[in-house]
Design a protein around this nucleic acid. Structure first.
Length: 352
DNA sequence: CGTGTTTGACCTGCGC
DNA sequence: GCGCAGGTCAAACACG
């Protein structure tokens, strides 16, 4: 069995080297011989300013990312990149790419203070602090209804209503909250990477100072509040920046979930399913895991991502692989030492 | 026919 | 108040 598992991992078509560095998780992957996709994924960068640095070689990247880290007051010891790819990585993440992304992410996590959080009219921003992810679709409907209502209200607005309007506006500013977000920088030829969930595109916008548009996707699962934005870096067009917003409140689609389960559950290796296509590259597995349980990867990070605390969290936890399980499964990999680096203990926050 | 994409219009927030 | 940019809506369209 152990050999099977080893072979399983060795035969990941793209996996060559996986590292977790400061602010980033990336897989340095082999280009080519990918028969089932035109995607040539080389690197995944996961951005999180709260992380300490871990790489397979325990070296730290330097450059503007450390400057940014220092600007955040984070203690980091960076050394020079040791490989061309590291150097390339440093150049990739510096200046124009990482900082805006990090800024955007950090700025998007706005924690409100009040206990009353009215749904703002015509606002696309849902209240994540309530952890009532199921209600987001309702919010979406509210949004639509409120858009129409707004028009009516605008048309019939009289002087006496100005005060309440201003009041609502003030409340809105005061209580604005956003769902947790996390972003990946992925070197890929295709914009929309497979992450295990089904997405419906609901918009596309031109990005200022960039020839590449930004696409907006929503999870197609009913009542799932998760959205994601996908855009290409104008600095390096080979890099795709994917930003997830919110937490899935449902299983992975069954076929894909089965695939992930097979990846992480050795007992399933002996019962191949015709539904299972070619094994995913390891970085895709990581991507899928992170997409599925960002709070477990991020913990109480600077993103402000925390595990859900109410009843919906129970459902959530039932549907994801726990860090303990993940750690157990990772031990089957021949690259366990590598993976330990990739998934340090602080990364795998223990269940309460 | 169901599902997903495209795209122009619209809304909101923000800076000046 | 105005203009701009980001984000969303929804009708039209494409596709299997």
């Amino acid at each position: 069995m152990a050999d099977e598992i080893r072979d399983f991992y060795y035969h990941q078509p793209f996996q060559e080297d996986i590292r977790l560095g400061y602010n980033n998780l990336y897989s340095q992957s082999r280009v080519g011989d990918n028969n089932d996709s035109s995607s040539v994924v080389q690197n995944i960068h996961m951005l999180d300013p709260s992380f300490m640095s871990y790489t397979t070689t325990h070296e730290f990247l330097h450059g503007s990312s450390s400057d940014y880290a220092n600007s955040l007051g984070k203690p980091f010891g960076f050394s020079a990149p040791s490989t061309p790819s590291d150097q390339a990585f440093s150049s990739i993440i510096k200046d124009h790419d990482v900082k805006p992304v990090l800024d955007a992410i950090n700025n998007d996590v706005i924690v409100g203070g009040g206990s009353e959080t009215p749904v703002t009219p015509n606002s696309s921003i849902s209240n994540s602090s309530s952890n009532d992810a199921v209600g987001d679709d309702q919010d979406s409907n509210k949004t639509t209804n409120n858009t129409k209502k707004d028009k009516e209200v605008k048309e019939s607005l009289e002087d006496g209503e100005d005060a309440s309007k201003k009041e609502n506006k003030a409340k809105k500013k005061e209580k604005t909250q956003r769902p947790p977000k996390f972003a990946f920088m992925t070197k890929s030829e295709v914009d929309h990477l497979e992450d295990g969930y089904r997405w419906r595109k609901y918009g596309q916008k031109a990005v200022k100072n960039s020839p590449y548009p930004r696409s907006y996707y929503r999870c197609t699962s009913q009542k799932c509040p998760v959205k994601k934005r996908v855009e290409r870096s104008y600095q390096d067009p080979s890099i795709v920046i994917t930003t997830y917003e919110g937490q899935h409140n449902h299983h992975l689609p069954s076929t894909l979930r089965g695939n992930v389960a097979r990846m992480l559950n050795p007992s399933m290796l002996s019962t191949p399913s015709p539904l299972i296509a070619a094994p995913r590259a390891f970085h895709e597995q990581v991507l899928m895991n992170m997409a599925q349980m960002p709070h477990q990867f991020y913990g109480s990070s600077a993103f402000g991502i925390n595990p859900p605390t109410n009843s919906s969290s129970n459902m959530y936890h039932q549907n994801v692989i726990t860090p303990h399980e993940l750690q157990q499964q990772l031990q089957y990999s021949p690259d366990y030492g590598l993976l330990q680096d990739m998934v340090p203990s602080m990364f795998l926050k223990q269940e309460p």
